[in-house]
Structure formats: structure tokens, C-alpha cells
């Protein structure tokens, strides 16, 4: 399995997709840095400034997260299915290794690369904000917890992609992954709106439809909990350290905090997907 991990990692560095996304990320970070430098040019001390700055940070993280998800999809969509479709799998699985080793090895190899990449993106965005003189105070522990959840999302997404790639073709895995990610994103937005409606208490009607939106959001989170994790990340990074309420993060922040049950679910979600993917893969005729 260590061999698979090692060579998965190596392969990634040689893939064109990786180079492409790296360039894209650099471009994004430069534009973001440029934007920040303009925004922070005239410092003032009003409360609106802090609200505005936290929104800028949220937006930066949101798009960084999006680019990471893009990289996860591009590099992993054919992790297993590609080996089958090209025929390279024959010479690998006729060796004395178990099939689950390939699935798990790919997951760990890609996962390691994604964690490194995702951490660089997160630390760059947060670092740029600090460097440019953001008024939000970050504590190291908040940054670390934020980082953990920022990396967790792509890993959960990776688990879904790997499982799908072990069972279906590359094309179908692409469709499934994009759909799931889209649903999670829309569901997350619905849940936010629902929570906003409940908070603003626009009569009994608002309360009720707010609740149904929240439920719809939770349901989509069960399909792919990336958005929930993302909200947890913003909460960990911003709220507890600076005392800024969720309201200030704008459309990219988090209104409702995911519950602990959600995280227990996420753990089993990843374990189950990998188990199920490996099991179905082991039963396949190649």
C-alpha cells in the first residue's frame, strides 16, 4: 500500500491538471492580494470596517475552497476508473496485493497532496489578510482549528470521488461528484437563508418556512457534508476569536452552526464510503 501511496503522490505532481490548478491558484492569490492592498489602503476604525474586512476574508476563503474542490475533482476523478479504462490495472492487481490496498492507497496519496495544497491556500489567504493589516484578531489556536476544517472538507469530497471512481466510470464519477457538490452548496445556502428567516422572525410564516429550508439544507448535507464543514471552518476561525457574530460574514459565512451529530455523521460518512467503494471494487470483474 505504501508503494501505491508513494506513486499516487508522484503521479499527481506530474499531471498536467496539477500544474494548471497551481497556476490558477497563484493567479487567484495574486489578484486577491492586489484587492486586499487596495481595500486596506485607507485604514479607519469604524465597526463597519471590521465587518467589511471579515467579509473580505470569508470571500477569500470561499473561493480558495472552491479552487481546492476543483483540484480534488480534476486530480481524483479517474483515480481508480482511469486505471481500469487504460488497462494499467491488469499488471497491478495481478500482483500479490489486495484490491482495497489500491483504493486506500489512492485515497491516502491523493489526500496527503490535497491537505498540503489546501493548507497552503488557507494559510495564504489568512496570511495575506494579516499581512495587509486586517483588524480581525486571529489566535493561533483559531487558525489551526480553521485550518483543520478547511482541509477536512476536500478530504470528505475526495472520499466520495474515490468511492465513486472505484465503482463507476470516470465520466459518471465526474457527473456524480459535481452534482453532489452542487447540491451541497445550494443546500447550504438554503439552510443559511432558513436560519436568517428564523432569526429575523418575520412572523409565524417566516419561522415555519425557515425551518423547512433548514431541514432541506440538513438533508443535502447528508449527501455531501462539505458545506457544513466549510461553515464550521468560518465559525472556528472568526467567531470565537474576535467575538464577531455570524451576521458579519455575509453570504460566504455561516449562519447556523452544525451540530456535533453532524461531525459524528461525517466520520462515518468517510469510513463508509471508503469501505463500500473498496468492497464493490473487490467484487468487480476487470
Amino acid at each position: 500500500m505504501i508503494t501505491i501511496i508513494k506513486y499516487t503522490f508522484k503521479e499527481m505532481l506530474k499531471k498536467r491538471a496539477f500544474l494548471l490548478v497551481s497556476i490558477l491558484s497563484l493567479l487567484y492569490l495574486s489578484i486577491y492580494a492586489f484587492g486586499l492592498s487596495r481595500i486596506f489602503e485607507h485604514p479607519s476604525n469604524s465597526i463597519y470596517d471590521i465587518i467589511f474586512q471579515s467579509q473580505i476574508l470569508s470571500a477569500g476563503l470561499f473561493f480558495a475552497n472552491f479552487i481546492v474542490a476543483f483540484l480534488v475533482l480534476l486530480t481524483s476523478v479517474n483515480a481508480i476508473s482511469g486505471e481500469i479504462e487504460s488497462g494499467t490495472i491488469y499488471s497491478i492487481l495481478s500482483k500479490p496485493i489486495k484490491r482495497y490496498e489500491l483504493v486506500l492507497g489512492k485515497f491516502i496519496g491523493l489526500g496527503a497532496m490535497i491537505v498540503i495544497y489546501s493548507s497552503i491556500m488557507f494559510l495564504s489567504v489568512v496570511g495575506l489578510n494579516i499581512f495587509m493589516g486586517s483588524k480581525i484578531t486571529f489566535e493561533a489556536s483559531n487558525i489551526l482549528r480553521g485550518l483543520f476544517f478547511f482541509d477536512l472538507g476536500p478530504i470528505v469530497f475526495l472520499a466520495l470521488i474515490i468511492a465513486s471512481s472505484s465503482i463507476f466510470s470516470t465520466v459518471n464519477t465526474g457527473i456524480i461528484s459535481i452534482m453532489a457538490y452542487g447540491i451541497a452548496l445550494v443546500g447550504g445556502v438554503l439552510e443559511q437563508i432558513g436560519a436568517a428567516m428564523q432569526q429575523s422572525q418575520v412572523g409565524a410564516f417566516g419561522l415555519k418556512s425557515g425551518e423547512s429550508l433548514i431541514n432541506a439544507g440538513i438533508l443535502t448535507s447528508l449527501i455531501l457534508p462539505t458545506d457544513v464543514i466549510y461553515r464550521k471552518m468560518t465559525a472556528e476561525l472568526l467567531t470565537q476569536s474576535s467575538g464577531i457574530s455570524f451576521m458579519t460574514q455575509g453570504p460566504f459565512g455561516g449562519m447556523s452552526q452544525p451540530s456535533i451529530y453532524m461531525f459524528i455523521y461525517i466520520f462515518f460518512y468517510v469510513v463508509f464510503l471508503l469501505y463500500y467503494g473498496a468492497k464493490r471494487f473487490s467484487q468487480r470483474d476487470l
Binding site: 487504460s86 488497462g87 494499467t88 491488469y90 499488471s91 495481478s94
Partner: peptide
């Protein structure tokens, strides 16, 4: 094993 449709 040398597969029929060898690809590496």
C-alpha cells in the same frame, strides 16, 4: 503475468 492488452 503479461496481459493481452498490455498498458503501463
Amino acid at each position: 503475468f503479461l496481459p493481452e492488452n498490455f498498458r503501463y
